[in-house]
C-alpha cells in the first residue's frame, strides 16, 4: 500500500512509474482491512488507502505489472536494472529505472507459533487479520464455528510483538489501535456484547487516536485487563472457550469463558527481503526490518518494510519517500 501511495505522489510530479506487484491484485494487506467507523469515523485510514489504490489503478501514468516477482536488482550505470519474473506465464523480463522504491511490506505473524492460544485448533480463535476480513467481506462479526453473533469477546494484544521468546523484541505499533477500533465496531453493532481487552501497555497511535481510546474507556461493557493470557482451551462439553490469565489488578489467576477470541497479531519482516536487497546494499536494522539509513544511490524504502507502521504512518512515510526520490532525481539531472 505504501508503494501505491508513493507511486501516486510521483506520478503527480510527472514521473513515470512502474509498479511491480507479486500478487494478482495491488493493495497489499490494507486491501483486506475493514472500515472501522461506528456512528462516526474512528480514523483508521482504510478509506484513504482504498482511495489511493483506486487512484493508481485508474492512472495512465503508472504501468501496473501484477503477478510479477522481482528476482534481482542490479546497479546499472546511474540507474537500476531489475530482473522480474511473470509468475503466471513463467517468463522473465527486464525493467530499467532511475530509482527504486522498496515497499514490500511486512508478513503478519503466524499465530500458530503460539500454540497455547489455540489458533488453528479452535475455530473461534481468530487473528486480527481474520476479523478485518470478516468485517470487510461479511459486514459483521460472527463465530466461525456456528455462525452465531458472539456476545463475550476477548482481544489479546501483543501476539507476536514485544515477545523475546520468538525473537520479536519490538512493538508492532498498529495493533492496539486496530484492535480497539474493531472492538468499537463490534460494540456498536451488537450493544449487548462485552469486550475484554488483554494488554501490556496501550500504545498511542498519533493525533487521531485519543478519541477512540477515551470512548472505549468510558464504555461500561469494555474491560481493560492488564494481563497476557497463558492458555486457551475447551472445558469439557461446555460451549465457548476457556481462557486463563494472571491479572495484575486482583493478583489472582482468573479463568473466563468467551464466545470469540481475537489475537492481535503483529508484523514480521517480510522474508522475501532477505538476500534480494542485500545485493543492492540494504541491511537489516536491530529489529530485523530494513534499516532506512542504509538506503543510498537511488534506492528508497516506503512503509512497513523499514519497520511496523499503521496506515497513516505508512502513507506519510510513502510521501516522505516520494520527496526523497524527487530530490535524488533532481540531484542527478
Amino acid at each position: 500500500m505504501a508503494g501505491i501511495a508513493c507511486a501516486g505522489e510521483l506520478t503527480q510530479a510527472g514521473i513515470t512509474v512502474t509498479l511491480l506487484e507479486k500478487e494478482p491484485v495491488i493493495g497489499g494487506w490494507a486491501a483486506d482491512y475493514c472500515c472501522k467507523a461506528t456512528d462516526q469515523c474512528n480514523r483508521c485510514f482504510v478509506c484513504v488507502a482504498d482511495k489511493e489504490r483506486e487512484g493508481v489503478r485508474l492512472s495512465d501514468a503508472v504501468t501496473l505489472l501484477t503477478n510479477h516477482q522481482v528476482r534481482e536488482v542490479e546497479k546499472n550505470g546511474s540507474g537500476y536494472r531489475l530482473r522480474v519474473e511473470n509468475k503466471v506465464e513463467g517468463v522473465e523480463k527486464e525493467v530499467r529505472a532511475d530509482a527504486v522504491v522498496l515497499a514490500t511490506g511486512f508478513k503478519p505473524f503466524d499465530a500458530t507459533q503460539k500454540g497455547e492460544l489455540g489458533y488453528g485448533r479452535y475455530a473461534d480463535v481468530l487473528t486480527g487479520l481474520d476479523l478485518e476480513r470478516m468485517l470487510r467481506n461479511q459486514g459483521s462479526a460472527r463465530k466461525p464455528s456456528d455462525g452465531q453473533v458472539p456476545n463475550k469477546i476477548a482481544f489479546i494484544q501483543c501476539v507476536g510483538s514485544r515477545d523475546e521468546s520468538i525473537g520479536h523484541l519490538y512493538c508492532s505499533k498498529a495493533c492496539c489501535a486496530y484492535a480497539l477500533r474493531m472492538a468499537r465496531v463490534i460494540r456498536s453493532q451488537n450493544p449487548g456484547s462485552e469486550i475484554f481487552f488483554y494488554y501490556m501497555d496501550i500504545q498511542p497511535a498519533g493525533r487521531l487516536f485519543d478519541e477512540t481510546l477515551k470512548a472505549c474507556e468510558e464504555d461500561p461493557n469494555f474491560h481493560f485487563i492488564r494481563a497476557i493470557p497463558s492458555k486457551i482451551y475447551r472445558y469439557y462439553q461446555k460451549p465457548g472457550l476457556m481462557m486463563r490469565s494472571l491479572e495484575a489488578e486482583s493478583g489472582t489467576i482468573e479463568e473466563k469463558f468467551f464466545d470469540l477470541i481475537v489475537l492481535s497479531i503483529g508484523m514480521e519482516p517480510n522474508p522475501e527481503n532477505e538476500g534480494l536487497w542485500e545485493k543492492a546494499g540494504l541491511k537489516p536494522g536491530r529489529e530485523g526490518f530494513v534499516d532506512p539509513a542504509t538506503c543510498k544511490d537511488g534506492i528508497f524504502v516506503a512503509g512497513t518494510v523499514s519497520g511496523p507502521k499503521d496506515i497513516e504512518r505508512s502513507i506519510m512515510n510513502a510521501k516522505q519517500a516520494a520527496l526523497s526520490v524527487l530530490r535524488y532525481l533532481e540531484g542527478q539531472s
Binding site: 514485544r162 519490538y170 500504545q203 529489529e287 519497520g307
Partner: peptide, 12 residues
C-alpha cells in the same frame, strides 16, 4: 501510566 514503546527500537 503506560510504557510507550511504539517507536523504532524503543523496546531495545
Amino acid at each position: 501510566r503506560e510504557l510507550k514503546v511504539s517507536v523504532d527500537e524503543m523496546e531495545q
